[in-house]
């Protein structure tokens, strides 16, 4: 090694150590398993990989999952932001209770969420019969999958937007009002841009969660190929059916897409943060 001292100061050493430690932790916990998955998917060669992806069932499942995940991101961005507004700006009896209820989807194993939905909307329940009679059956149909995903993704946007909104200086909104802006203009021109990073990160989390969700939909989807079989159900079937490479290939697509979405949203967020 060189004659120079290894570190300029002990602070440098600490920085280096902590950075090293967190990076290796990330490596062991996250990157290694992902690399293993990538290896598994590509080991038999790219031909097998692309063959797996050209299977119409796999393609449909991926398409369904992406559509649903995108829908969850959009719906949650809108409803989650609205819910956060209610929680931040309105006082009503039971608000504290509501505030705690919001996190429940985090606490309940998602498969239990599926079970609850089957109990509520299932074929033998009053709600289920009512819905079916009106031509909108939920359970074992795509709308049911969407409802299950709504349940498991419900808290993400609320919980990322709410604290930011609480910290927001109301003076900006007041300034907009004194300048002649109405509520909507104020919201879209002043408030929303300030909340945008939080909304985006919440929506990104909801998207990823919806994309990978398995437990919540395994009971309600019906798992019918080319109909209600999502990518996660397809992957599960492939694993159980000893088609590991097919499972890995589809998973890699899910991962890559999720990663891309997170990257895009992160860069959008960073742009917004620079203004502070």
């Amino acid at each position: 090694m060189s004659q120079k001292p290894a570190f300029k100061s002990s602070a440098d050493a600490v920085t280096l150590l902590t950075r090293g430690a967190s990076l290796s932790y990330l490596g062991v916990v996250l990157l290694l398993p992902l690399a293993a998955l990538g290896f598994e998917a590509l080991r038999p060669g790219p031909r097998v990989f692309f063959e797996a992806l050209s299977d119409p069932l796999a393609r449909y499942a991926l398409g369904l999952s992406f559509t649903l995940a995108l829908a969850m991101a959009v719906v949650n961005a809108v409803i989650g932001t609205a819910t956060a507004w209610v929680l931040v700006h309105r006082d009503f009896p039971g608000k504290a209770l509501m505030n705690s209820l919001i996190d429940l989807p985090f606490a309940v194993p998602t498969v239990v969420a599926g079970l609850m939905l089957v109990a509520l909307y299932g074929p033998s329940s009053t709600m289920g019969l009512l819905l079916e009679r009106n031509g909108v059956p939920l359970i074992y149909h795509r709308p049911g999958v969407a409802v299950a995903l709504l349940f498991v993704t419900y808290p993400f946007v609320i919980r990322s937007v709410q604290p930011v909104w609480l910290e927001l200086d109301p003076a900006e909104e007041e300034a907009a009002a004194t300048l002649g802006a109405n509520h909507w203009t104020t919201f879209f021109a002043v408030t929303l841009p300030a909340l945008r990073p939080a909304v985006l990160s919440g929506a990104a989390l909801a998207f990823s969660r919806a994309l990978g969700e398995f437990g919540g939909i395994s009971l309600v989807a019906g798992n019918r190929p080319l109909d209600t079989q999502t990518a996660s159900l397809y992957v599960y079937g492939a694993i159980e059916g000893d088609r590991t490479q097919v499972a890995a290939a589809v998973s890699i697509v899910l991962l890559a897409a999720s990663f891309a979405v997170l990257l895009i949203l992160n860069s959008l967020q960073n742009n917004a943060v620079k203004l502070d």
Binding site: E172, A189, V190, P193, A194
Partner: peptide, 8 residues
């Protein structure tokens, strides 16, 4: 007092 400029 704290300007309340639109930061974005």
């Amino acid at each position: 007092q704290h300007y309340a400029l639109f930061r974005h």
